[in-house]
């Protein structure tokens, strides 16, 4: 709006063709691509950290929502963007699962990106309709195993957090439930609230308020430890289901070939943002917590992505579902 901004923009435009140098980075506005619609949980996480990171970097990070095809369109765009640190991607676990779910991706997940760091890992909760009979998680396991073919399991579409968690649940319990896919969490949750479906396993982001309000029943969390948010809820691992440990982790990526100093600078900025009280508080409201500083690093994210691709490949292939 101001003259200085205009000059800034013109200046930025003039250096676009020059090779990116890390000295003085960032010199202009950074675009953070979120491969999902505005207002969704991933978008929320992105906007939270983007705001704090902007303060630290001294340049505005603008969130651009490039939704579609389970996040692969947005990721594909960043993969092809200039590796100058001015286009970054914030994506969740879908980055790893889409490598298997989509058999003809436009990019090579492991070789198209550089890494900035992990942002947060949102826990999952196994929930059921309000009047579901079992009283606790062991009873739930018994009941579900005994009635597998008459119980329904909702998910928010292929590749969604609830779909991944549902696959894990069915494999862990060896119970092939009747899966009922929905288009998004909203309608799936509505049907769970209305008792039209029996079970759903979804992120705390989507379930916390409903559990606290007593409109759905929670059985277990998928974290290694119990959550502060629900101290009474056992972990699935406590009942011996170690394989059911997982969360929706979010990471920030840059296109392959971005100068390491730039990734490092972004990573430092991310760590500062995650240490911010406001961010911690906002994430706590969503039932999650910022990743520790040690995880908000390029190395940690790279290791996570590789491990998760390897982990989900057999699960998805066993279920035999593909999104293309």
């Amino acid at each position: 709006m101001t003259a200085s901004k205009l000059i800034g923009a013109l200046f930025a435009a003039t250096i676009l063709t020059a090779p990116a140098f890390a000295q003085g980075y960032p010199e202009r506005q950074i675009t953070m691509v979120v491969p999902f619609a505005a207002g969704g949980p991933t978008d929320t996480v992105a906007r939270l950290v983007a705001e704090r990171m902007s303060e630290d970097l001294g340049q505005q990070i603008v969130v651009e929502n490039v939704g579609g095809a389970g996040g692969t369109l947005g990721a594909g765009r960043v993969a092809k963007a200039e590796a100058d640190g001015y286009t970054v991607l914030l994506h969740h676990i879908g980055m790893a699962t889409s490598a298997t779910l989509y058999r003809n991706l436009a990019y090579d997940t492991l070789n198209a990106f550089d890494y900035v760091g992990l942002v947060t890992e949102v826990p999952m909760v196994v929930t059921a309709r309000q009047d579901f009979e079992p009283a606790d998680f062991p009873a739930f396991v018994e009941y579900v195993k005994a009635n597998a073919d008459s119980l329904t399991l909702a998910n928010a579409g292929i590749g969604a957090a609830s779909h991944l968690c549902g696959m894990l649940l069915m494999q862990a319990l060896e119970a092939p439930l009747v899966t009922v896919p929905y288009k998004g969490t909203g309608p799936a949750m509505t049907d769970l609230l209305g008792g039209q479906v029996d079970i759903m396993c979804d992120q705390t982001t989507n379930t916390t308020q409903q559990i606290k309000g007593g409109t759905i029943k929670a059985y277990a969390v998928t974290t290694p430890e119990r959550l502060d948010l629900f101290p009474d809820l056992p972990t699935a691992a406590e009942s011996g289901f170690e394989a059911m440990q997982f969360g929706i982790w979010h990471g920030i990526y840059t296109p392959k070939g971005t100068p390491p100093e730039v990734n490092q600078r972004l990573s430092e900025s991310l760590q500062k943002a995650l240490a911010d009280e406001g961010v911690t508080k906002a994430m706590a409201d969503l039932g999650t917590a910022p990743s520790p500083a040690a995880d908000a690093t390029p190395e940690a994210l790279k290791a996570k992505l590789e491990a998760e691709i390897a982990r989900w490949k057999p699960v998805i292939e066993a279920a035999g579902v593909y999104a293309d």
Binding site: A9, A13, T14, L16, V62, E64
Partner: peptide, 11 residues
Amino acid sequence: PFRRFGPWLPL
């Protein structure tokens, strides 16, 4: 979040 002048321009 539109770029006002894109990378194709030799500005």
